[in-house]
Each structure stands twice: as structure tokens, then as C-alpha cells.
Simulated scan of single mutants.
Amino acid sequence: MQTDFYLLEQGGPERALAPLAGKVLAVGGRLLVVAEEAAERQRLSQALWQASGTSFLANDVAGGAHDARQPILISDRIEPANQARFLALADGIWREPDAGAFDRVLLVFGQTGREAARETWRLLKSREGWECRFFRQEQGRWQQAG
């Protein structure tokens, strides 16, 4: 399984998630976004709907009648009702996903979550079959740093 670590240099996950989600959709994928707090889930949903002036990233917060149809589903738990193969942990909190359920996990974290992300990196690097990559924002774009 591949895990990509995304360090937020500025702004919150609601600003940083749109380009990542756009890339997932561009390859025909579906995304499950997980955040613990309800207010954060609503901010993420709103930001995706308003991703740019001419387009949007269709999504919904889990628990509705049409969860299975959503290209991006936002939830407080790792339950891909939309059959997502990509998982974004938007609140920076590592949750142990079923290794076979996802092709890629995106861990989005800020400065306050940096030490926890380092611990997660060390944990995953010690496991067979896990690949880790690190990205940071440079001039508003994600650049692989390690």
C-alpha cells in the first residue's frame, strides 16, 4: 500500500485537499475523506464544492441516501460506502485502514501534527509492502520531498 504524507505549510486541509481530490478524480478514482470533527467535514465539503470559479468537486458528507454514488465521500470513519480506492485522512490523524481496501492513503497534516506524522512514517516504513512518500507545498503546489 502506498501512503503519501502531505505537510501543510499554510492554510488548512480544506484548501489543500481540492488539488489532491482533483487528481484522484482525473484518473477515474473515488475518494473517501476522513475527518473526526463534524465542523471540519462541513468545511471540507464546502471547499470542494467551491474548488474553482468554473468547476467544482462533487461530494457529500456520509450518512445520506446517495453515499454509494459520490465520487468524494466525507466521513468520520473509514467505511468507503462509495467504493473509494483512495483514502484522505484530512485531519492528520492516522487510522489503521484495511490494507486491501485502498490503493493509496493521503495523510494531510500541519505543523502541530508533524511529530505524530513522523511516528506514523516510521511505523509504516517498518512494514513489508508499504511505500511512503513525503510532499510539501512550494509556491502553492505539492512537491515530493522524500
Results as ranks from 00 to 15, higher is better:
residue 62 A to V: 05
residue 122 R to C: 08
residue 122 R to N: 12
residue 59 N to C: 04
residue 67 D to P: 08
residue 83 Q to W: 12
residue 118 R to H: 11
residue 55 S to W: 08
residue 89 L to T: 07
residue 73 L to S: 08
residue 82 N to W: 09
residue 61 V to Q: 02
residue 88 A to L: 10
residue 47 A to P: 11
residue 84 A to C: 15
residue 88 A to S: 09
residue 62 A to E: 06
residue 81 A to Y: 06
residue 123 L to H: 14
residue 58 A to D: 10
residue 85 R to C: 14
residue 92 G to M: 01
residue 38 A to L: 06
residue 65 A to D: 10
residue 123 L to I: 09
residue 93 I to A: 13
residue 59 N to S: 06
residue 38 A to I: 05
residue 55 S to L: 09
residue 54 T to W: 03
residue 106 L to F: 04
residue 39 A to L: 06
residue 103 D to L: 14
residue 41 R to F: 05
residue 97 P to F: 03
residue 102 F to H: 02
residue 106 L to K: 07
residue 90 A to N: 05
residue 58 A to P: 12
residue 48 L to E: 09
residue 99 A to M: 04
residue 102 F to S: 04
residue 52 S to H: 01
residue 79 E to Y: 02
residue 95 R to M: 03
residue 47 A to W: 07
residue 102 F to R: 01
residue 52 S to I: 01
residue 72 I to M: 01
residue 117 A to E: 11
residue 96 E to R: 13
residue 113 G to R: 07
residue 85 R to I: 15
residue 103 D to F: 10
residue 53 G to R: 00
residue 86 F to V: 15
residue 120 T to E: 06
residue 86 F to R: 15
residue 51 A to K: 06
residue 105 V to W: 02
residue 64 G to S: 05
residue 95 R to Q: 09
residue 64 G to K: 00
residue 104 R to M: 12
residue 120 T to M: 08
residue 101 A to G: 00
residue 70 Q to A: 09
residue 96 E to N: 13
residue 71 P to Q: 06
residue 61 V to G: 02
residue 88 A to P: 11
residue 113 G to Y: 01
residue 42 Q to C: 01
residue 85 R to D: 14
residue 92 G to A: 02
residue 77 R to M: 14
residue 94 W to I: 07
residue 69 R to S: 12
residue 49 W to L: 10
residue 122 R to S: 13
residue 114 R to Q: 12
residue 111 Q to Y: 00
residue 97 P to R: 07
residue 85 R to V: 14
residue 50 Q to L: 12
residue 101 A to D: 01
residue 120 T to P: 12
residue 84 A to R: 12
residue 108 V to F: 05
residue 64 G to T: 09
residue 73 L to I: 07
residue 104 R to F: 08
residue 122 R to F: 11
residue 44 L to M: 13
residue 110 G to A: 04
residue 85 R to Y: 11
residue 65 A to G: 00
residue 89 L to V: 06
residue 80 P to I: 15
residue 118 R to Y: 10
residue 66 H to V: 10
residue 104 R to V: 07
residue 99 A to R: 11
residue 106 L to N: 08
residue 89 L to Y: 07
residue 91 D to V: 07
residue 93 I to N: 08
residue 63 G to A: 09
residue 121 W to F: 14
residue 58 A to N: 11
residue 77 R to E: 15
residue 112 T to D: 13
residue 110 G to W: 01
residue 39 A to S: 10
residue 43 R to A: 12
residue 85 R to F: 10
residue 76 D to C: 04
residue 66 H to Y: 08
residue 39 A to M: 04
residue 100 G to L: 04
residue 66 H to F: 09
residue 122 R to P: 06
residue 63 G to R: 06
residue 67 D to K: 00
residue 119 E to C: 14
residue 67 D to I: 03
residue 44 L to V: 13
